[in-house]
């Protein structure tokens, strides 16, 4: 089942990646579920990880606990959107 907010959340995740990592809109628009993020994007350093998480929290009104942050949730664009979608519709 695909929650109805999914497209909006997807767009917000792309916007956050653009804003925090300084990616072009074209580059972020080309991301699909299997696009690798952490370890694959040189822009995504540890400060940027903090920035991405905080911006997602602020813009989606969610709270991400420290123990939920691991390599898996940041591994791909799909993993990250799935994680925040589950948070946002809870």
């Amino acid at each position: 089942m695909i929650p109805e907010q999914k497209p909006e959340i997807d767009a917000t995740v792309r916007a956050v990646l653009c804003d925090v990592l300084g990616l072009s809109a074209e580059r972020a628009a080309a991301f699909d579920a299997s696009t690798p993020l952490f370890g694959a994007l040189p822009e995504l350093d540890s400060m940027a990880v903090a920035g991405v998480l905080t911006e997602l929290e602020d813009r989606l009104g969610i709270v991400i606990e420290d123990d939920e942050v691991d390599g898996d949730m940041l591994e791909t664009f799909g993993a990250l959107t799935n994680f925040v979608t589950a948070k946002a519709i809870m």
């Binding site: 400060m47 920035g51 942050v69």
Partner: peptide, 15 residues
């Protein structure tokens, strides 16, 4: 929020 950002960056680096 300032301290939380700093803490998160440290945790990401440590991972």
């Amino acid at each position: 929020a300032v301290v939380r950002d700093l803490t998160r960056a440290r945790q990401a680096a440590d991972r």
